[in-house]
Simulated scan of single mutants.
Amino acid sequence: MYFYKINTKSSANGIFLLFVVFVLYNVKADDVSVVNSALPPTCYTCEGANCLRVTKLNTTTDCTDPLDYCVTIFKGFTVVARGCYAELTPSLRQRCDSDSHPECTKCIGNRCNNKGRADFKCIECNSSYNNKCLTDVIILPGVECPIPTAPNSYCYVRQNTDGTTERGCLVHQREQRECLSNAQCSMCVSDFTEACNTYKITTRITSGVDSLLRNYNVNTIIKISLMFITVLRYD
């Protein structure tokens, strides 16, 4: 944490500086775009069903307050809102009032709210470029997934026709359906642990659905089935 020397003769300036320190300490700085503090940030925005539409994925809004920041609100793993914190409804903002609520991600930067939940990560690699994707997967770090447009997020392992293995995130409905129809593609749910896609696909896999279900108990299978009923409701 950074400490600032505050002029005791100006209580107004002191309060303002303390507020800036609080904001910077409690939100994640964007790695790509740094906000000009004199200008309000630009955030990706959506609400409700629009958050599940790929055509609305890159819609943005300009915040009105230079001290505002971008947020993404989840219900479970489904995005229910994105935008400027100060411009969201109080019922949505309350999830961001906690420092560590898993259903709210905060960031400082233009269009920085383009990631999924911070507690959901997958291994992302291709054995064409990284041999550890085949031999030492367990030592590879999990990465935060892109913003999902599907109601649920999954990790995957796919064996390509050229013999290479690919691992990563599946956050869009079309990609998830393609994996389900591919006998050499397997999806998994992290269940709040990092990087579930560390296993190896074998030649005995008969379908993507079979691959997904073989790795989980009955309760998890029921949960996944209910998830996909929700997936099929959206295009």
Results as ranks from 00 to 15, higher is better:
106 K>F: 03
124 E>K: 14
100 S>F: 11
102 P>D: 05
55 T>D: 14
67 L>Y: 12
61 T>S: 13
87 E>T: 13
122 C>K: 12
93 R>N: 06
114 N>R: 14
130 N>E: 15
73 I>N: 01
129 Y>E: 13
132 K>I: 01
74 F>A: 04
57 L>C: 02
63 C>G: 03
70 C>M: 10
114 N>P: 00
65 D>T: 04
61 T>E: 14
120 F>H: 10
56 K>Y: 00
60 T>I: 15
116 G>F: 01
90 P>F: 07
98 S>D: 05
108 I>D: 11
88 L>E: 04
97 D>W: 02
115 K>G: 00
79 V>I: 08
114 N>V: 07
68 D>K: 09
58 N>C: 08
94 Q>N: 10
75 K>S: 15
72 T>Y: 05
79 V>D: 06
104 C>Q: 09
80 V>T: 10
111 R>Y: 09
103 E>K: 03
61 T>C: 04
59 T>N: 14
114 N>C: 05
75 K>R: 13
67 L>K: 13
133 C>Y: 02
78 T>K: 14
72 T>K: 04
98 S>E: 02
127 S>G: 11
101 H>A: 12
112 C>W: 01
64 T>E: 00
128 S>A: 12
80 V>Q: 00
90 P>W: 05
73 I>D: 03
118 A>D: 12
61 T>Y: 09
111 R>N: 15
98 S>K: 10
104 C>W: 10
108 I>S: 12
123 I>K: 09
87 E>K: 15
117 R>S: 04
82 R>T: 02
89 T>F: 06
